[in-house]
Amino acid sequence: MHTLRVYRRSLGAHLRATLEYQADFWILVVAAVLTQGAGLLLIATIFARVPRIHGWGVWEVVLIFGMMVLAQGTSELLAEGTWGLAGLINRGELDRMLLRPYPCLLQVCSSRVGMNAFGNLTVGGGLLVSALAHLDVAWTPGRVALAAVLLPSALLIKVSLTVVANSTSFWLRGAINTFAGGLDQLGELTKYPLSIYSVGLQAVLATALPFAFIGFFPVSVFLQHGRLAWVGLLTPLVAAWCVFLAVTVFSRGLRRYESAGN
């Protein structure tokens, strides 16, 4: 409880500090809306001409897309600090975090707030709601329970994968982690139905780098869509695995930092 409270307070403090600059806040909100708008425009223009892509209709794709945007916003809100990890290591600033009686990983995560978060959370949430409204989902208690498990699991996967990608900074020296940036961009591929990709790429996105469990698989099982819909039931397990991976990779890296100096 104490741990969570400190985490929340750290994020809150950064939030207050950044909201001081109102113009910056609105610029980033607008930028996020425009960026996601470009993606939506693509989806809209395509579905204006074809009814389905590989069996996926427009609102089903919007649901996947919305999950991805929501997850991105969540990661920008809760773990934006990890994008600064390479710089913290590079400048030796991780030292001070090791000197405080609070988990280092959580200090890193809460050391920034991504201002895009608000734009992306709003857009993602809006897309999710409107897609679900158009899809005519029968909200049985089972469905509600499924959604209640799938949604946080999916968001957790995104946050954990961001932590894993950036934890490679302990091994890759440099002030910016290009590898993590590339990995994040690779994850963007899963904004569209997975089946459009080659089998090899599908396998990578479903197993080694399970970005497909952020949007595609949870949506598949929730809508009972496609032969592989059942795979979506694994989402909570994948989430647990990703959290485990994030914590393990980070603490391995930290141990390396502690014995190697900087």
Partner: peptide, 27 residues
């Protein structure tokens, strides 16, 4: 403004749409 990130993202999105890089203008 200090916030170059936002400007750069917005420019990317606007020029992506209006240049035809996101979808050909014919669509």
């Amino acid at each position: 403004t200090q916030n170059y990130l936002g400007i750069s993202l917005a420019r990317g999105a606007v020029s992506g749409i209006l240049s035809g890089a996101t979808v050909p203008l014919a669509f």
